[in-house]
Design a protein around this nucleic acid. Sequence first.
RNA 1: GGCCCCUUCGUCUAGCGGCCUAGGAUGCCACCCUUUCAAGGUGGAGACACGGGUUCGAGUCCCGUAGGGGCUACCA
Length: 498
Amino acid sequence: MTSPSTRPVRTRYAPSPTGPQHIGGIRTALFAWLYARRHGGQFILRIEDTDQKRTVPGSVDLILQALDWLGMDIDEGPREGGEFGPYVQSERLEMYQTWAAWLVDQDRAYKCFATPEELAEMRKAGAGYDRRYRDFPADRASELEAQGKPCVIRFKMPLGGVTIGDDMIRGPVEFDNEQLQDAVLLKSDGYPTYHLAHIVDDRHMRISHVARAIEWLPSFPLHIQIWRALGWKMPQYAHLPVLLNPNGKGKLSKRKQQFADAGGKSVPVLMHEFIDAGYLPSAVMNFLTNIGWNYGDDEEIFSTAQAMERFDLKDVSPANSAYPIAKLDWLNSQYIKRASVDELCRLLKPILEEAGYAVDEERLKQVVPLLRVRLKSTRDVVPIAGFFFADWASFKAPSADILIQRKMSRESTAAVLRGAIPVLQALESFSHVAQHSAVTAYAKSSGFKNGQVFGSLRAAVTGQKVSPPTFETMEILGKQESIRRIKLALQSITGSES
RNA sequence: GGCCCCUUCGUCUAGCGGCCUAGGAUGCCACCCUUUCAAGGUGGAGACACGGGUUCGAGUCCCGUAGGGGCUACCA
């Protein structure tokens, strides 16, 4: 039944098109994809749109966008095509209907005419569907059908015994058959349920390994029984643990929420939120791969190509994980630090433009090396270095709370700034090297610490507490503009002085 | 409620009976360095859920308890 497959490896991601892609689903896709790539197999995308009510138009584009962005290439799917298509379930209805009917013929399934009201009553009574149509005479069923009574097809679950499932991640799992219901295979609208559809498709598409979320584990025995009733060879199944909220409470929710564990910030969970938040796809891949699986060798940072060489579904942890979002910020900053200047320019330019700045490419190239170590996300370029691209003439002096640094007072700050002006003014070359030595000398003679002087200048010139290095910044701004800003700061802090 | 899964530092994890006085990473704290931010460096606090077994020996195997999670639809 579940003996190791010697078939070529073919895995699939089979999402429902119900809206934006959730990070949990994407991680399932990632593990399936990695497994296929590790074994030189194929990765298939299949759209499971058997619930007409929940289908949201445009979802497939979102799914494709997410996979594309992360670099998970698809071998067969609705966009790519392939010899086992169509890859959209609503276009395969006939197959499901055929096999459902076949199961009825084989007496492994039956028509059930229970109304929604009846079902609701049974549920209220506690035990669920009571199999009242399981042994309903065929001629009477035909009668009801002839009268136009709607019906579903239900699977005849074995009434006793146990079903043992072999899960790649946790090994054998045993279930009492009597705990399971006669699940609906085909709905009254002619659409299949997941239970039937995924089996027919996985068999037809030659899927060798199914990586799916753990919420399917309880219906695993049902699926095993359906595979057997159909007489088909099962793929191997791996039930992936879920991502919990950052506080460890409950399944990671779809809605944006705030968590103290994430610094009180709302955490991204939808794929487009990761894109918008300025994360790099490589960092997100690294991040996701490291939850529930690890590369080993105490190596936290590794490429997708490296992961591909080692990944195995068998090594995935069976335990659920809290969503370690803080690690993504760190990983992202590491990837940004390692990115080339050109690459960063390419990423940063549209973000600055979107923020309303006119970006001069030469200037950007000058600025990028200065701020790369300060970026946790590409978005940070706006608060940290946006001022380079603003209209310099309209620069407003920062307020006192920014200007006056730690261990400094209004008076000492004013004194430092006032004294620095002639020092900078006297410089022939305004290079950051020249500034550094001149200002260091000035600090020494004035009795202030380097840090006190440098920090005050940083705030005066940039208007920010966090900024690129002060002297490099002033070099780019030029002597005139830098001194103008220091004078403005002086005014701001003293109220009137010029 | 019933069934199933899970349980190592706050968090992500290493550990597959002796190498564990439990390792790495992140986060936090301290110090160093420094163009007082950031980055970088060094160090620190911080975990085998609990109770029984099995064994010469248990974080590692078994059982129970507790806690967490999932499922319990004509949704997936």
